[in-house]
């Protein structure tokens, strides 16, 4: 059986997480922000899978399943909010949400 250095898997997860973070901080379109959040969640799931491979246990995959469920629920609620926002402001620019009144 071949071996893979564990730090390389974790580095991949770290790079993906950082890229998602850049996306969240940079983008003004809320759909892109939600997509970048998905990238970050996926990167944390990858870290769990790498840890599961390190210890040879299935617990990491169980945690990945929980993250998957969380991502699905988050996307459903987030997209519902985007639809509601688009109805109200006819835009996907997050800067219009800077005034929190009523």
């Amino acid at each position: 059986m071949e071996t893979i250095p564990i730090e390389h898997g974790l580095i991949l997860a770290g790079i993906l997480f950082a890229l998602g973070l850049i996306g969240v901080l940079t983008r003004r379109n809320i759909v892109f922000v939600l997509m970048s959040l998905e990238i970050m969640l996926n990167a944390s799931g990858l870290a769990f899978i790498v840890a599961a491979a390190r210890w040879g246990h299935a617990e990491g995959q169980v945690m990945f399943l929980i993250i998957l469920t969380l991502a699905a629920a988050e996307v459903a609620v987030g997209l519902g909010l985007i639809i509601q926002m688009f109805r109200k402001y006819q835009t996907v620019d997050i800067n219009v949400l800077s005034e929190m009144k009523g």
Binding site: E2, I4, P5, E7, G9, A53, G56, A58
Partner: peptide
């Protein structure tokens, strides 16, 4: 993150779970 990760080094013997 890379600094912390770089301190550990362990080759994963890939076992199918």
């Amino acid at each position: 993150l890379l600094n912390v990760i770089g301190q550990l080094s362990h080759d994963v013997e890939v076992t199918r779970v």
